[in-house]
Design a protein around this nucleic acid. Structure first.
Lengths: 90, 90
DNA sequence: TCAGGATATAGATGGCTGTCAATATGTTGG
DNA sequence: CCAACATATTGACAGCCATCTATATCCTGA
């Protein structure tokens, strides 16, 4: 999961997806980055395999959204590493 | 920061350090992993450069501890990615 | 059914990095 | 001051991976 977020391009893609209030079209992601469409597709697969995003198809288009369960796992992992009194901090 | 935790050996080292109630000696870390001493030293440097751990010297020995500020940054980064109602979940 | 477009897959490649052996650096006890 | 030890640094190398081009797959409108 950390590995999925360790590449800067992929992290930025994830941030973009996470910033949306609705699923975002893959084509819109391709438009916003300098890398090629296959590279974006590859990154989406990595993020998907990590459980961080979900994909839904509408016709030809692919719509990506954050998988809340993945984020929860990530947060819980971090919290488990924190000393208790620090974990209580908000 | 995610990159620092993306390697499995390094993540396990960090988990070991985080699990201690007092700083842990580098020699004890070397003892618990299969990799060589220089490799451990390299990983400690990566974790240190990422702001995740701190080191203090006592004589010949190096003692490592989690840097709470790094963990806070990490947690805040994750929280910033979460939808508000999910971030409120405990 | 076909053309065109959106996305995914395959294969190749260059750069990054985790690892090791060898060595350097720094510290302490005698 | 020296020997022994703990840790860090260096240099080399193999495997991984982000990226590209080319191509395949899938869907839709006409």
């Amino acid at each position: 999961m950390h590995k999925a977020l360790s590449d800067s391009t992929r992290f930025e893609i994830f941030r973009l997806v996470a910033a949306q209030s609705a699923p975002i079209c893959a084509c819109d992601i391709v438009d916003r980055f300098q890398v090629s469409q296959p590279t974006i597709s590859h990154h989406m697969k990595v993020l998907r395999d990590a459980g961080l995003i979900t994909v839904s198809r509408r016709g030809v288009w692919a719509y990506y959204a954050v998988d809340p369960r993945g984020l929860e796992v990530l947060r819980d992992t971090i919290n488990a590493l924190m000393p208790v009194q620090l974990a209580a901090t908000r």
